[in-house]
Design a protein around this nucleic acid. Structure first.
Lengths: 261, 261
DNA sequence: CGCATCGTTGATTGAGGTCAAGGCTTGTGG
DNA sequence: CCACAAGCCTTGACCTCAATCAACGATGCG
């Protein structure tokens, strides 16, 4: 990991939070300040490791990361994906009940909010506190969806469903096209996410390709979903769990307007 | 559901929260007030239904409930169990991204905190806000463990692991003995939790019995785990994800002492 | 060039699903 | 008091989805 005084052009967090919550000018500034210092990690590096006592929150500026757990027999279960604009680590920030790890899947840039600042920020900026709450709620919705995927769907549905979720989440931060995105996941990572073997992921991907559901170039890692509606239908995907249909604000008087994109 | 002005003797939430966080006398009183009005639900009744717009938080005073989702093909996936002392529903309270339902498995008594009061309570009582945060973090740890269970364990391990988690969670609120508790779950509920078929749950339970891991009387629904250590070993269970090893407090000066049990 | 990583494919096996049937309760109504 | 139905548990027979084992090709890197 290397220190790096970032020159963040348009701030991804300002953009993301603003689509959920009306932020005051002051709150914009707080976010800008928080994201001045950045840390970079390389592919494969641990950002938070299991045993490590860590009490900070992190903002993921760019790149992909995974939260995972190792089981006694040596297997790995990937709990969730962290994508640009996601907030993570703030769960452990207050208590010590996590023993999962976070690892970079690609080169990654994160901003760190030290534990001691979090409470202060939340107290003085209600909307930022709300933003944290929102992030947590969203993460829980994603975990819930993952549980359903693992518990009640077969390999084909699991894979298609996950690819749709990633498309949708990336679109929300403008990191995906209408139906395609950069998918930096090996088949092993997919297997460890979906509770399948590598071999079976391979065969299931092939089947998705044969069914003309997706195109995936192993070279460029570009994934294209050929028929989003058909794949959603086939895999029982319902994107509503990721949607936010309200803009709650607890201090409308000092909120500033912000255009929806 | 019926209204019921409850005469709560010793408050389960005061007891539970106090083991995590030092509460002020005033905060004790707030909790007592919040739990004056209670609602009762019968077995099988929905407490929160999917489509229902619901913006309250709930405290589960007694009984068991499940959070679940229905998949397109009609299957059901149980996301989590709600046990006495658990807080739920406050995720949806601020945003609208959930579409899962909560149903009573046994007769249940809940206390409801209307949405409009939550923000106010959190603002004026930092430790109660902290308690909510803690509850969320804990719930997330449980969901994470459930994902690992579904993704990386076989039927035998899943079942044993779940039974141990329930034992441990019930012990924390003094609803279980040293190694036994009342388990009000049908094999169908277990199947829908663990992503298995009813038939296979039946066979796996038998195997656990044959291995002298558990005793389960279908009449009384009393479950006894005969060798907690052996079962933990066999199923990769590590209870640390439920433990709280710190008592964070942001206002020690006005906190009162409270004995650990 | 040699080695590691990743993707691919075939052959075999096994865990767990599905189908089907019967038993044991409990409750309800004649 | 008995008949019947509805749940839930149990067990057997069979089948299928996905794991495992094994091998090979492609790519990329020191």
């Amino acid at each position: 990991m290397s220190e790096n005084s970032g020159s963040t052009s348009t701030n991804i967090f300002v953009a993301k939070l603003s689509s959920y919550i009306d932020l005051s000018i002051e709150e914009h500034q707080v976010i800008e300040e928080l994201t001045q210092n950045s840390m970079a990690f390389d592919e494969g590096q641990d950002i938070i490791f299991e045993s490590e006592k860590n009490s900070s929150a992190y903002l993921l500026q760019s790149g992909w990361a995974i939260r995972y757990k190792i089981v006694p027999d040596g297997g790995r279960q990937i709990i969730s994906y962290l994508l640009p604009g996601d907030i993570f680590g703030f769960r452990e920030s207050l208590f010590e009940l996590s023993d999962d790890s976070v690892q970079a899947l690609t080169p990654v840039i994160v901003h760190c909010i030290p534990a001691e600042n979090i409470a202060e920020i939340c107290d003085s900026h209600t909307n930022l506190s709300l933003a944290f709450t929102w992030a947590r709620a969203r993460e829980q919705a994603i975990l819930t969806e993952h549980i359903v995927r693992l518990g009640r769907r077969n390999a084909y549905e699991r894979l298609g469903h996950l690819l749709l979720e990633l498309l949708h989440r990336l679109q929300l931060v403008e990191k995906a096209g209408n139906s395609d995105y950069f998918l930096p996941l090996t088949q092993e990572v997919l297997a460890d996410t979906l509770g399948l073997s590598i071999v079976h992921v391979n065969r299931t991907l092939r089947k998705l390709r044969n069914d003309l559901m997706i195109e995936l170039d192993p070279k460029t890692r570009r994934l294209r979903i050929l028929d989003v509606d058909a794949l959603s239908e086939a895999t029982g995907y319902d994107q509503s769990f990721l949607d936010q249909n309200e803009k709650p604000s607890r201090s409308p008087q000092d909120a500033i307007g912000f255009e929806e994109k």
